[in-house]
Design a protein around this nucleic acid. Structure first.
Lengths: 261, 261
DNA sequence: GCGTGTGAAATTGTTCACAGCC
DNA sequence: GGCTGTGAACAATTTCACACGC
């Protein structure tokens, strides 16, 4: 699900499962909200509801961190906020750079939740020389030439790539060479990185396509699916498939595989 | 991993595993690139490399769709593009609306890969009346009042929420009431939706926090972990934990589970 | 009694390894 | 000989259900 590379051969590491790690920020957000309303304790049930998961999962997740609850009572909100923050490494400050200050990069730079939790935008970097010096979200954009210097001067270890797809791999390599070891990639490309570098990907069009899949499925069921449709129709599609489409077998039915033409 | 709600009680549905569905767009992208270069066929090995997965997984994934390859040869690129597109429901046109035309919404509206694959931005919607009529990415922004009408006039079933967190749930409810059944949520909130509605979430700050977790882990190993750092500083944090922090136990070892107070 | 913490069961996803077909 | 398709082993994750401490 997450990182591009294999991510680490499960070093002895005191294993908090990856799936759990991915949910900790969710819990943290819910807890922070409770904290702001000065709620002192929550049960797994309540917190789970606020985070949008089920309570068994939440309890299991917390059990990997330690025994932080009180039976018959629940969890102390402040204490848990602290423990999760610490576990996630948010008790320290993480300078990040954003490379590629187009529409998206600007949106990211302006994104408030960014700075809120331990992350600090150390620099905005863009390849367009005419952008240099222009402030975005109050931070002056710097030219790509400065990239290496910025990284090392600020001790940046997390980089955000918001460039066009074509530039992403190259930017990635420069970031990595300069010392960045975690990358959040918004460009629609697969980045290849050396071992030890983490990549996470955010990809709008992939998300939409996944939704479309389920959406299509729903539509098919409405009309009660099954029965009908010949399931696989000769692919009129783009150019005719090289190999004869004849002998192909789709898995049996369900989604009315109606054709374009 | 994806959807907020339980997503469907595993109706008998001809199961393509969710994990596989999530990778299909990746394959599709790699295949499209090959297609543009007029490459006629690929092996699972090559395609897997291009998509950033391993070949066994890819073959298994494809096996859920049917037998679309040729032993000893590989896969016909065009044919596979077509099959995957169809499976994902991209042979039809999906009108989407984007609600919340701030920095992020504008970035999304401008995002090219959007329109490319079967998705069409049917409307941009914002609550700010002064935005109304202003074109963003060539599309005039409309006021929230029009939301219901827009949805039904255009037969929109996919909505993108790019509003501030505070407005998201309400927007979501209006979208759903108007007939939207798939939502892509960029607001940092948990949306609650009725059964049958799919929600996918894209959350910058969560991704960063996950990276920070791994980053911290790396740093710990470098200095050979253990020993050093007081690791936990008294949680000067907000208020002191209610229940005595005394008896707490972190999981054994590694990070010294030193207590707050 | 209530709600956490957790073994054990169930489910889902990944990898192996090889038979079968080109 | 090369490469797909897939059962079977393995690994990760989720869910169940209940003992245990407050």
């Amino acid at each position: 699900m997450a990182t591009g590379r294999t991510h680490r051969p499960a070093t002895r590491s005191r294993g908090i499962p990856e799936a759990t790690v991915a949910r900790l920020p969710l819990y943290l957000r819910a807890l922070t909200a409770l904290s702001e309303r000065s709620v002192p304790t929550v049960s797994s049930e309540e917190l789970a509801a606020a985070a949008g998961v089920n309570s068994a999962k939440l309890r299991k997740d917390f059990s990997y961190l330690g025994s932080y609850g009180t039976r018959g009572v629940g969890y102390d909100v402040e204490y848990l906020v602290y423990q999760i923050s610490r576990e996630l490494g948010l008790t320290q400050d993480w300078p990040v750079v954003i490379v590629g200050i187009g529409n998206l990069g600007a949106a990211l730079a302006n994104y408030g939740g960014f700075a809120s939790r331990g992350f600090r935008v150390a620099a905005l970097i863009d390849a367009d020389p005419t952008m240099a010096g222009k402030p975005v979200a109050g931070i002056p954009v710097q030219h790509t030439d400065e990239l290496e210097k910025i990284i090392s001067d600020n001790g940046v270890s997390i980089g955000v790539i918001a460039t066009p797809a074509g530039a992403a791999q190259q930017v990635c390599e420069r970031l990595v060479a300069a010392g960045v070891t975690s990358i959040l990639n918004f460009a629609p490309t697969v980045l290849s990185v050396p071992d030890g570098v983490d990549v996470r990907k955010v990809d709008l069009s992939i998300e939409l396509q996944i939704l479309a899949f389920h959406e299509q499925r729903k539509a098919g069921e409405e009309t009660d699916a099954e029965a009908d449709v010949e399931t696989v129709v000769p692919p009129v599609a783009t150019r005719a498939p090289a190999t004869g489409a004849a002998g192909r077998k789709g898995p049996d039915g369900d989604v009315p595989a109606v054709m374009p033409a």
